[in-house]
Amino acid sequence: MSITPPRTVGRSNNNVRSFENFLQGWLVRQEHYLEELRCTLSTSHQSKDEDLRDLISRVLFHYQQYYEEKSRIAKHDVFLVFSPPWFSPFERSFFWIAGVKPGLAFRVVGSSVEDMSEEQVERMEKLKAETRAEEKELGDELARIQEGLAAPPVFEVARRVAVEEECGEMDSVMETLRVEMESVLANADMLRTRTAEKVAKILTAVQDVKFLAALTELQLKIRMWGSHLSR
């Protein structure tokens, strides 16, 4: 079941424009980072470890900026973030709780980093299992929220609102839903960032650059494919 809560059109449009403007600049910077990551990989044998770590920190901070801006918009309208018009239908098809699944990081590592030690593999597998467990927990929480929308009390309130009664009660129901959606989104975004940071700590500096280059390239390709399919 899908319910789109009412929101002020002007406020919604402002939020859309605000995030679209941010995203446009963010994507330009992401393309620059991809070029820097690729160049660094081509000369990694000449690079100092501290220089590689500096680049890694800057790229991770770049992603953190995205989540901070996303959180700001979510506080204004969390329902908008769950159905973001600034992403194409193709891009949204990869989404899990308004963003990519944290476990995607392990697939990217598997396809881009081929020289992990046994210890690294073991640590990565342990982290993967922990991440899957947290993904399931958050997925179950979102399912509980969605199932709650179909509960008889909600339908009863909606029926009374339809005949111009109990508007205050409906506002209370939607406020509860908003708070729950904000919470599950915040936890999902935290898991996404925490997983990427933990993966980075397991890998060496050169391996991190490989991982971040592959991840950034994949996201930009999905963006490009989505744009082409939407034409």
Rank of each mutant, 00 (worst) to 15 (best):
Lys221Met: 15
Gly139Ala: 15
Leu185Lys: 13
Glu31Phe: 07
Glu175Tyr: 14
Phe94Cys: 11
Val199Tyr: 00
Ala214Phe: 11
Glu31Asn: 09
Gln64Arg: 11
Arg160Ile: 04
Ala200Gln: 14
Ser230Gly: 03
Leu104Thr: 09
Leu23Cys: 01
Glu169Ser: 07
Lys126Trp: 10
Val199Gly: 00
Gly148Pro: 07
Arg7Thr: 07
Ile145Tyr: 12
Glu114Val: 05
Val81Arg: 00
Arg7Lys: 03
Ser47Thr: 14
His62Asn: 10
Arg38Pro: 04
Gln207Val: 05
Arg223Pro: 08
Met181Tyr: 06
Lys210Trp: 01
Asp51Glu: 15
Arg92Asp: 06
Arg123Lys: 13
Ile222Ser: 14
Val59Ser: 02
Leu212Met: 04
Phe22Cys: 00
Arg144Met: 10
Val173Ser: 04
Glu36His: 05
Asp208Leu: 03
Glu175Ala: 15
Ala162Gly: 10
Arg132Trp: 09
Gly25Phe: 14
Thr204Cys: 08
Thr8Ser: 09
Arg7Pro: 01
Ile145Thr: 13
Ala188Tyr: 04
Met174Arg: 12
Phe79Trp: 06
Val209Ser: 00
Leu212Cys: 06
His228Lys: 11
Val179Asp: 06
Lys198Gln: 13
Ile3Tyr: 15
Ile56Ala: 08
Phe87Lys: 08
Val161Tyr: 02
Ser42Trp: 06
Ser93Thr: 05
Ala162Asp: 02
Thr8Val: 11
Asn14Trp: 05
Ala98Tyr: 10
Leu212Arg: 00
Ser227Pro: 05
Thr40Leu: 09
Pro89Glu: 05
Pro6Trp: 09
Tyr63Gln: 05
Arg159Cys: 07
Glu180Phe: 07
Cys39His: 07
Val179Ala: 06
Leu23Thr: 02
Glu35Gln: 14
Ala213Met: 07
Ser172Glu: 15
Glu165Gly: 04
Thr216Gly: 02
Ala74His: 02
Met224Asn: 10
Arg11Gln: 10
Met181Val: 02
Met224Pro: 03
Val100Gly: 08
His62Arg: 07
Thr193Phe: 07
Pro102Val: 13
Glu141His: 11
Phe19Met: 07
Leu191Trp: 13
Asn187Met: 06
Leu127Asp: 04
Leu127Ser: 03
Leu80Tyr: 02
Val154Thr: 14
Arg72Cys: 09
Glu20Gln: 11
Lys136Thr: 02
Val113Asp: 01
Leu27His: 04
Arg72Trp: 11
Ala162Pro: 01
Leu127Gly: 03
Tyr63Ala: 05
Leu127Trp: 03
Leu52Trp: 09
Thr4Ala: 02
Thr193Val: 10
Gly10Ala: 10
Leu80Thr: 01
Asp77Tyr: 07
Trp26Lys: 14
Glu118Ile: 00
Arg53Tyr: 12
Arg192Lys: 08
Leu60Gly: 00
Lys101Phe: 10
Ser44Phe: 14
Val28Lys: 14
Ser230His: 04
Trp86Ala: 06
Ser18Met: 13
Val78Pro: 01
Lys70Arg: 12
Phe94Gly: 08
Pro5Tyr: 08
Ser172Asn: 13
